[in-house]
Computed example of a mutant assay.
Amino acid sequence: MTAARIERLVTSGQFSLDGGTWDVDNNVWIVGDDHEAIVIDAAHDAQAIAEALGGRTLRAVVCTHAHNDHIDAAPELAARTGAPILLHPDDLPLWKQTHPDRMPDGELADGWVLAVAGVELTVLHTPGHAPGAVCLYAPALSAVFGGDTLFAGGPGATGRSYSDFPTLVDSIRDRLLTLPGDTVVHTGHGDTTTVAAEAPHLQEWIDRGF
């Protein structure tokens, strides 16, 4: 039996919302072993994600939120693998902007536990960047998969539709900064960070309205 591990794939594409479009690089996280895995945020390139999976069984395509750059490859990846797409229902309005004719297969809810390769990932509902945003906490891996809730250097963006800065700050304070300090935050874009690295800066972000 092989140990569960975390793999990162970076894919490139575009983020579009509120009439604007931006070029972005996204982190796609694969959690599993040599036999099975889950994909967190199927961004931009289903072919590249399928190649990274190899012959492993894909148990689920988990969406941290439904901005198009995190879900645009999800239906194709699900069709290729037969894996269900899971999304918090509060993000369905965003999902439908990208995939109006293809609903997710299942819902994510706070406290729900997803198991893969002997590891449990607990769903933490962390609204703010998006109403249905979630993080996935895997204590056995000392990891939390944060989507766009928290980055190295600050919280996710809240300047567009369906987002709210005070709600995001509450989510970060109450759900993420309460995790052990050595927990690695695997972000939706850019470099990883840790809870301990970000926790001292919470008040700065609040004061700046970051």
Rank of each mutant, 00 (worst) to 15 (best):
M103P: 12
N27Q: 12
I30P: 10
A66M: 03
A52T: 08
T21D: 00
V119Q: 12
D90A: 14
M103C: 06
T122N: 11
D91F: 01
S16K: 12
D90P: 00
D69K: 04
A60Q: 14
L58R: 04
H44K: 04
A52R: 04
H65I: 01
Q47Y: 04
N26Q: 14
E7F: 07
L92C: 12
T122S: 14
I38Y: 06
A66R: 04
L53F: 00
D41E: 06
G55R: 01
E51N: 14
T21L: 08
H88G: 11
N26R: 15
G118P: 07
D110P: 07
G19K: 09
E120T: 14
W29I: 10
L58S: 06
K96A: 15
D105I: 11
T57H: 03
T11N: 12
D41Y: 02
D18V: 10
A50Q: 05
W95V: 05
P89C: 13
V31L: 13
C63E: 10
G19H: 09
Q47I: 08
A66V: 02
V113L: 08
A46W: 07
A42K: 00
P84K: 11
L87F: 10
D34Y: 06
D18R: 03
H44Y: 08
A115G: 08
D45C: 09
L121A: 04
R59L: 11
H44G: 02
N68M: 09
A60Y: 13
R8Q: 06
A79L: 13
W112G: 14
L9G: 08
D101A: 14
E76M: 07
D41T: 09
R56E: 05
G106A: 11
W29S: 09
G19V: 09
V119R: 06
Q14F: 15
L86G: 13
D41W: 00
K96D: 13
W29Q: 07
D91C: 01
A83Y: 05
G82N: 01
A74T: 10
G118D: 09
A73Q: 01
T64H: 10
A109H: 15
E107L: 14
V123K: 05
E7Y: 08
H35C: 06
W95F: 03
V28E: 02
I85Y: 09
H88V: 12
G111N: 11
L87V: 11
D18G: 07
H35R: 15
A73P: 03
G55N: 01
H35M: 07
D23E: 15
G106E: 04
P104F: 13
A115C: 03
W95K: 03
L17F: 13
L17S: 14
A73S: 04
T81P: 02
V28F: 00
G111K: 08
G82F: 00
V62W: 12
T11Q: 14
A74E: 07
L94Q: 04
R59Q: 09
V62Y: 11
T81E: 00
G13E: 01
D90Q: 11
G111H: 06
H44C: 05
S16A: 15
A48V: 03
I49P: 00
L94W: 02
R80W: 01
W29N: 04
